[in-house]
Design a binder for these strands. Structure first.
Length: 255
DNA sequence: ATGGCTTAGGTGCTAAGA
């Protein structure tokens, strides 16, 4: 079975690209972030017509998450109980015997922004919540736009980015703490070519210069490690007309 | 040089992303 995550930066704009991508890569589970749609505007029927079930949590203008799945999904939470938040950044659902947490982690904006402590607090609350989710025994996968480049190998120009948001030590520390709860960064479970990223800035021809960051991740529990067959980034959608600035990350799990 | 591009909301611009 295959599971993917993709920050689509507006599902209204990107829906045709999502459906086209699913034709070429018919994953079993797809986590979407930045749908930027209120629930009444969510294109449920179109997605169901394409052969997927879908659960979603949105708000006007910003954020918004969804999980598409071949098998039915049962919503477990749209919010971390330790961090009540009007921003729709979390969809936790039970799918095919897994707990799938689709997360649109806060960006933080800059180290001196009030959004930065919001990001760190959000991450701390996640670290409190995750052990409780693990306790029910159902394997937990955390997939999404983490807005954290875990190491310098995940940054096109580490010197230029040093000390900035997305790479700051406090964020990376929390990412490491999450791994320490018993997860594997699927992508780094395999030998990978250098300079592979999941996001490129729209400006300054970021994609053409490969000026990117690897900030979209799929964390799987160590218990699933023997089943992890592959993890890769599909750059193809970033070459579309009117692309999202992010591109999908995919894992394949053996039965 | 804090710019550069893209989106939503709404109809001219700002806020926000990463």
């Amino acid at each position: 079975m295959k599971l993917a995550t993709w920050n689509v930066n507006s599902l209204k704009v990107r829906l045709p690209q999502v459906l086209a991508w699913l034709e070429t890569e018919p994953v079993d589970i797809l986590c979407l972030q930045e749908t930027k749609l209120t629930d009444d505007k969510f294109p449920r029927e179109t997605i169901e017509a394409a052969g997927y079930q879908v659960v979603f949590a949105g708000q006007p203008t910003y954020n918004g998450v969804a999980i598409l799945s071949r098998e039915p999904a049962r919503v477990l939470a749209t919010e971390n109980p330790h961090y009540p938040d009007p921003q729709r950044r979390i969809m936790l659902a039970e799918v095919s015997g897994l707990q799938v947490l689709c997360g649109y982690f806060p960006n933080g904006q800059s180290l001196d922004s009030e959004k930065y402590p919001y990001k760190l607090g959000w991450l701390d609350a996640l670290l409190t919540w995750v052990p409780q989710l693990q306790a029910n025994g159902m394997p937990l996968i955390i997939a999404g736009d983490y807005n954290i480049a875990p190491a310098d190998a995940d940054v096109h120009d580490p010197a230029a980015w040093a000390g900035q948001v997305l790479v700051s030590p406090a964020e990376r520390e929390r990412f490491e703490k999450l791994l320490a709860l018993g997860f594997i960064d699927s992508f780094r479970a395999f030998e990978q070519a250098p300079k592979l990223y999941s996001w490129w800035d729209y400006r300054q021809m970021g994609f053409r210069r490969n000026a990117g960051l690897r900030i979209d991740h799929i964390l799987i529990p160590q218990s699933l490690a023997p089943q992890l067959a592959r993890c890769w980034i599909d750059k193809a959608p970033r070459k579309n007309e009117q692309p999202s600035d992010h591109t999908p990350v995919i894992i394949e799990l053996k039965a």
